[in-house]
Write a protein that binds this DNA or RNA. Structure first.
Lengths: 244, 244
DNA sequence: CCAACCTCTGAGGATCTTCTGAGCGCCGTC
DNA sequence: GACGGCGCTCAGAAGATCCTCAGAGGTTGG
């Protein structure tokens, strides 16, 4: 369930919603991505292979493309060529298998694009996509700047830096992503299932118990000796909120 | 039995009533849900298996679907695919057995959908459904925002926060659901049977005595030292109303 | 290759919820 | 005034839920 971002937070430089094209041959994946992205206020189209991706891009003119590196009909480079032929400026976020051609991708991303390795968490993908568009100047956040602020808790997403009351807090990767999700949904109760679906990889087979564990880690680092901001709502989930 | 919710509270973005399709193979359940939902002002259709669900969706074009995860002919994912094929935007609320959630319904809550575990209470199901539609922007509440207000009593459903005269009141899960039901039906006498049917799970075997008990808990937390808002109507039930 | 770190599992124990049962008081009736 | 029906509250047992610790396994970086 996606209960953040009431109205769209992002707008294209032309004022309309940001358009993103999702290209992958697994329908389950495109479906989930499509759902999350439109719930975040983006306009989404999907394609399942390279040829239809290029064709869709021609009409849809997306600001960004989420593109699987391995497609049934062509590889990432081929699709990239097709896309660049259609669209002058388009941000591309590649999805790759962990061990596939990381070096070649590295060359490509030099052009301002980025990549995420499968399996990824939705929060990570969203963050990358947002970063990509911001850097390309193709979207302006209504927020204004790049800081997430809840009470005296501040997160700089780009620098991956978190401070509470001015003190720097060191977080591991998972802790950071969990906190980011919480901070993007302040004063809203999030269930463990929701958290699991967003912060952990989509193929994670584990149980909700991990969420409790990481909440416990976060509390130790963030709420230590201060009024707690992470509250348990028994039988429902967790909320992040500044003391009232 | 269902004498609350005066006229429909929800309208689709097109101005007409919200359409919801209920899919479950237990006729008892679909019947109850259908009754409650239409009493709440929704337009309802039902189906008892996956195939007829997809077929009905084609003609009915529901805004939301309440879908049992386990159906005689196909599983939830299959039906979901069928539905997504027919309808562009549709919210899905899954009904699952408690332990099938543990097996994980990967990505379900990520795509903007939600689930409720059986056995559930009607209030919980309704709340989830309302939340789903509100977030999808497919319904606008005549109310305007997400707060329930009765006198100086205020409930924020998303944060699960209740205040009386500005003071925060901590409630357990059941207390919260009971109060939500009362606040959604202010100035209306609700019988214990009604309350039991709506706030407790449909398979709850207990007696009306629990309702008295929980009303007592609520009074202690909400009416403590203030003019009482929860009034007993002897031989009939309870009313919530601000002092007149 | 080793050390440091991160992530997850499992178990134990602490805490909070929920429901049952019983006693008591209020109210209307007889 | 006595009685029965009804509602309120307390106390406690059973259960659900959550927190934390300790440790295995994997990954990273030197």
């Amino acid at each position: 369930m996606d209960n953040h971002s009431p109205p769209p937070r992002l707008y294209g430089s032309d004022g309309g919603p940001v358009r993103v094209l999702v290209v992958d041959d697994e329908p389950d994946l495109t479906e989930v991505l499509s759902g999350v992205l439109s719930a975040e206020g983006w306009e989404v189209r999907t394609a399942c292979d390279g040829a239809s991706a290029v064709a869709t891009a021609r009409a849809f003119r997306p600001h960004a493309v989420v593109l699987d590196w391995m497609l049934p009909d062509m590889d990432g480079l081929g699709v990239l060529h097709g896309l660049r032929g259609e669209l002058e400026h388009v941000c591309v976020l590649f999805l790759t298998a962990r061990d596939s051609v990381e070096d070649r991708i590295a060359g490509i991303t030099a052009g301002g694009d980025d990549y995420v390795t499968k399996p990824f968490s939705l929060e990570e993908l969203l963050a990358r996509l947002r970063g990509l568009l911001r850097r390309a100047g193709m979207a302006r956040e209504t927020n204004g700047d790049r800081l997430l602020v809840v009470g005296d808790l501040v997160m700089d997403e780009e620098a991956r830096e978190v401070t509470r009351g001015g003190d720097l807090v060191e977080l591991s990767r998972t802790e950071f992503e969990l906190l980011r999700f919480l901070m993007r949904n302040p004063r809203r109760v999030l269930s463990k299932a929701q958290i699991l679906d967003r912060v952990w990889s989509y193929d994670f087979g584990g149980r909700a118990h991990v969420v409790e564990l990481y909440i416990s880690y976060l509390r130790k680092k963030i709420d230590a000796g201060r009024p707690g901001m992470i509250h348990t709502v028994r039988g429902v989930g967790y909320v992040l909120k500044p003391e009232s």
